Computed example of a mutant assay.
Amino acid sequence: MKKFYILLTLIAVLAICFYQYGRATWHPLVVKVMGKKTVSEVIDEYGPDARNKLKPIFNQKGVFYPPPKLSFVAFKDTDTLEVWAANDNESYTLITSYPVKAASGELGPKLEEGDRQVPEGIYKIVGFNPNSAYHLSMKLNYPNEFDTYHANHEGRTEPGTNIFIHGKASSIGCLAMGDEAIEELFTLVHDAGRSKTTVLISPTNPSLNSLEIPVDAPEWTAELYRQIESKYRAINPLKG
């Protein structure tokens, strides 16, 4: 009987691990059986609740919803994602912030496929995935022109790809926000427009800390950090 309970416990642990970390394997099968959802269907499902939460916050901050300009600013050292927005011809206002539930890797730029690093830089959202294994996801344009230039210059043929902001709470190089948060962020970007949205990923908050170059980081990291700080100052010009 004791061996039976040990075996049962082991099976349960393996099942939980497979559910948590094997989503890329089993989730496509679920989607195949249940059928794919469109972006419109997801917005119809989650949009009303998300907007009911977001619109009062935007109204309180004096920014239209959906905002004409939208920026997500993520700080890797504190696992925080801030939402900044602005009306036309006005400066940005901090709307709200979300905890990042999981983000693998260390401070410093992403260099290659499989290094589990969250990239650092200035990115755009280039796609929505309403059938993500991580509930919902938004794809970033990593590697961007800066990343690609330095990868080519250094002979790195696989700098990595498929970096997302998504739900759930596990990450191998993405920003995992949890399901409720991604429903709000997904709806927000959908309503504002991907072309009006910028994503800035910084190792730390430039208003509070200097952007220190990690040991063994490439020489061009200094240039990258200058770009990150300049972009952040355009969003938040106030020095902390």
Rank of each mutant, 00 (worst) to 15 (best):
L211K: 07
L111F: 06
Y123I: 02
N89A: 13
Y98M: 07
A12M: 08
D49H: 06
N59W: 09
V33D: 13
L70W: 00
I125H: 00
I163K: 01
L224Y: 03
I201M: 12
E158C: 06
N131A: 09
R23W: 02
G167V: 03
V30G: 03
E219F: 04
D147G: 02
P56W: 06
K53D: 05
T9L: 13
T197Y: 01
G160R: 07
A12W: 09
S137N: 05
V118S: 04
L238W: 02
K32Y: 15
K55F: 03
S230Q: 11
N162A: 15
Y5R: 11
G121R: 08
G114V: 09
K110T: 01
L200S: 03
E112P: 01
E113Y: 10
P237A: 10
N205R: 04
Q117S: 11
S71R: 13
P130E: 05
N152T: 08
R226Y: 07
N131R: 08
A50E: 01
H190E: 07
E41M: 12
V126R: 07
Y232R: 03
K239R: 13
K101S: 14
P67K: 10
R23M: 10
M177S: 01
E183V: 03
V42G: 01
I16K: 04
R194P: 00
K36N: 07
V42L: 11
A222Y: 07
L54V: 01
A181M: 07
R194A: 10
L81G: 00
D79L: 12
V33L: 15
N89G: 14
T93C: 11
G62T: 10
D79E: 14
K196D: 14
I57P: 00
V83E: 03
K124P: 00
F186L: 05
A217P: 01
N236A: 10
L238V: 13
L8G: 11
